[in-house]
Amino acid sequence: MPISSQSENSVSSEAVRVRLKDVCKSYGAQVVLKNVNLQVEPGEIFAIMGPSGSGKSVLLRQISGLESPDSGEIWINDRHPDLSRADQTRVAMVFQSGALLSSLTVGENVGLFLEEHRLKSKKEIGRIVSAKLKAVGLEGVEAKFPSELSGGMKKRVSIARALVIEPQLILYDEPTSELDPVSAVTIGQEICRLRDTLAITTIMVTHDRDLVQGIADRVAIIIDGKIVAIGTPKEIWANQNRKIKDFLHINFKFDNTIL
């Protein structure tokens, strides 16, 4: 089991391929995902963009295993997502809000997976937690509570918590939302560095056009629950589809009118 051999500077042994075939999801009468087909290659940084309410986060929840599709199939290598087994959990998710447990300290949050599954001794967990926090540029914050951290720090703690799982796949839900431009760039660099050093397959849902153009290998545009385009950022930005152009090239002028 990969987790049991975890060391502070461990490297993900293999990135995974993610495949979605005809995935559909509805909530009552509202159809959110319509026949989504997608393939994300091992080690790739794949961005999913689209207007609010287009189904991006719902798609991420299907891939993570938090929800199951009504129809269609999701494969992470040769397995379906399964959250019920700790020894199969190699999929980590970084939530938009960080989703750190407010009653636990930063250190307890980061070490929670190892602690709850009894995978390491307390001493080893402490060492791993410090190493993972150091890996995301946060040192000496183990004893703080999430409420004492800034938004950017919370996101980085959340990334550190995800790294403890030794993920083969990391899912980011709006990794740079609510962050100032400097923190957003730092998080972007962090995502890139993790992929380069740990060879983790990365899927991120974002509205951040700079982030996507800066670090994504490929982008999918999802509108009204359907994927309307997939390609490199360059290809997507050159796409002439009216809806995509409207979404990607919209801008504010200083007199507050929308171009």
Binding site: L83, V91, F113, I165
Partner: peptide, 25 residues
């Protein structure tokens, strides 16, 4: 209130992604 807040702020989802059963935890 506590569990509701954890639910709304996705803390329970975070537990599930770590294969931690919220009923046990």
């Amino acid at each position: 209130a506590e569990i509701g807040s954890m639910r709304v702020y996705q803390e329970i989802d975070a537990l599930r992604t770590m294969s931690i059963n919220p009923i046990h935890y």
